[in-house]
Design a protein around this nucleic acid. Sequence first.
DNA 1: GACACGCTTCGCTTAGCATCAAAGTGTGAA
DNA 2: TTCACACTTTGATGCTAAGCGAAGCGTGTC
Lengths: 234, 234
Amino acid sequence: MNVEEPDPDTAVSRIAAAIGEPARTRMLYCLVAGHARTSTELAVIGDVSPSTASVHLNRLRAERLIKVVVQGRHRYYSLAGPNVARALEALSVLAFGPAAAFVPNTPSSLRAARTCYDHIAGALGVAIHDAFRSLGWIATAPSESAAYEVTAKGDAGLGSLGIDVDAARGLRRRFAYPCLDWSERRPHLGGALAAAVLKVALKRRWVTPELDSRALEITNQGRRELRSRLGIRL
Amino acid sequence: MNVEEPDPDTAVSRIAAAIGEPARTRMLYCLVAGHARTSTELAVIGDVSPSTASVHLNRLRAERLIKVVVQGRHRYYSLAGPNVARALEALSVLAFGPAAAFVPNTPSSLRAARTCYDHIAGALGVAIHDAFRSLGWIATAPSESAAYEVTAKGDAGLGSLGIDVDAARGLRRRFAYPCLDWSERRPHLGGALAAAVLKVALKRRWVTPELDSRALEITNQGRRELRSRLGIRL
DNA sequence: GACACGCTTCGCTTAGCATCAAAGTGTGAA
DNA sequence: TTCACACTTTGATGCTAAGCGAAGCGTGTC
């Protein structure tokens, strides 16, 4: 029975070795940011071919450092849990000293509000997501694991904001889903519906894009509207 | 200037790789216990030949995970700092879950008082060390980095305890120095003087050795004497 | 159904690294 | 001075694993 159980050190050894390869390290530290990534993205991050990346990701998964969510023909990889992030942070402390410990060096404007592809992320994105949920405008779809449906109340409410829900529904893309926010570590709203929200927010000048980045500036008018219509205080 | 600075990830990578080799992992987790070890001891722990161990230790040193103190023909290796222990603990959490996190499984009797070769270690050893210092009986030697000298006051005080300081001074071995205690993580007194202290403590029955271990039991009389003579409360 | 796409698996090559024995260095003891 | 000892350095050997391209396998789109 002693032979069955491997050296306790060996387990640590395998995990450390899994982290200790440059391509895998890059992948892991990309995932610390919180955003789930596809294998292709991680191949670019790791600076290796897709096939090599696949092997790496398999190994990280075997060591339970990452987990994968299959969604259609995409496979989204993310850290297996907060413990993994903690271990990676402890290692980066060793590498750079506690002063330079891992802090996502994000300009605070990017934290407050920014675009994530074609929808709103950052604190504002998360706040909108939460508001829609607590107002009962969206609800998790019973069938699908990670998808939202718009309720009858939501149809009315979103419509009053000037959002064409039916048009968004008609698009050939995912309608609405929780998208993990890498600065907030909590989901914001993604999908066609979220894109429509951003379009309206820009059109009505609730937010204005900064020219050279993905950051969004929240206007005073936007602040007022968000508070009165959605109960969001920023 | 960008080229000069290596990938930040690479630094983490190298450190994790340094940890992620079975022999090195065993050595490191042995050192987490706090006791400095010689290269020969670590070779046994790592289950490799002395020459291989030497290479491993060099690498760990290059990555600043361990440090070495040269003492005569011995070289004592120990962890470079508490950050290293923290990183190792974070990794062991990943390996075994938080429940089985790294706890030095030391019988509490060994923690309270034990022998370290020929002197007193454990909480009692640390307490004696601290008492001698705060009483002004010993002071760090100006010339040497890690050595104590006995002051005039100390000569009198130690003499009144029945310790022959001059005899200890005459021995061909290090006289007195701080010796890192692996259960307390703080120094206790080592060297010829400390051996003399143990001899007196045993002779006067302040402590009695347990037959089958290095543990020492503190007698009631010892407790009284330690309190009245050195101000030590246990 | 056919094609494009994302990703994985397979086969192979190459490079790095762990390993040990043997020789070398420096320290303490007789 | 000489020996013993602790440890390191060197050199040769073998194994592991990282790397890519080509081929295979589902999934979604036209």
